[in-house]
Amino acid sequence: MLVLVLDSSTPAVTAALAEITPDAVLPRAKRSVVDARAHGELLAPQVAEVLAETGAKPTDLAAVVVGLGPGPFTGLRVGLVTAASMGQVLGIPTYGVGSLDAIGYAATHPRSDAAPEIGPVLAATDARRREIYWAVYDLTGERLVGPAVDAPAVVAERARELAVRVAVGEGAHRYADVLGLSPRAGLDYPPPYALAELAADRVRAGAPGDQLTPLYLRRPDAVAAAGRKPVLQ
C-alpha cells in the first residue's frame, strides 16, 4: 500500500512516499528541504515531485501519514492541512503521528550496522523563544515523558532525573551546552520512514483515520491584530 508521508513540524519540510507491505515499510521517494520560512511554498511541489519520481498518481495513495508536531504553529499547519485536504479529495484515511515520536523511534531502532543506544533517549526540536519541544523514549521507543515545551535548563534537569544518556534532534544540537548531553548526529528532523513505521499497523488494518489536531502545547498569544491601541493615549 502506497502512503504519502508529510512533516512540517521543524525547519525541514518533508514529503515522502513509502510502500507498506505486510511486514515492512519500504522507502520509495523523498524530498526534504530545510527552510524555516517556506513551508507553504515548498511542500506541495515536493508532493508532486515524489509522485512524479515514482510514476504514481494521487489516486494510487492508500493513506496519508503526517507529523502532528509539536512544532512552530504556522509551518506545522501546512503539513496538516495538506494531509487533510488530500485525504478528503481522495477519500483515504489520514493518520497523525507525533513528530518527536518519529525521531525517538529512529534513535531507538537503528539500522543493523549502528551501535545500540545506551539508556533513555531525549528527542528535542527547536520551539523558538529559547525553548525546546521535547520527549524522552526508552530503548524500545516507548515514550516515557512528553511531549512538552520547556526551557533547555528545565529539560536538562528532567533528563538527569530520567538517566537520559543520548540526545537527538535539532534542539539537542542547538542547546547541547545547557542540556549537558552530546547530541547524536544524523537525526535532526523527523525521518519520514519512521513516521510511516509508526502508522504502519493502522495503515495495514485499514483503521479509521484521525482528526488531525496539531500538538500545539502552547496557548495562542491573546494579542489582537487590531484594536489594541487605547483610544486615547
Partner: peptide, 21 residues
C-alpha cells in the same frame, strides 16, 4: 491578510488541487 491565516487556505487549496488534479 493575516499571514498564518492565509497560509492555511493556500496550503489547503494546493492539497485539493494536487489530489484532484
Amino acid at each position: 491578510g493575516l499571514a498564518g491565516a492565509l497560509l492555511v487556505g493556500v496550503a489547503a487549496a494546493k492539497g485539493y488541487a494536487l489530489a484532484a488534479d
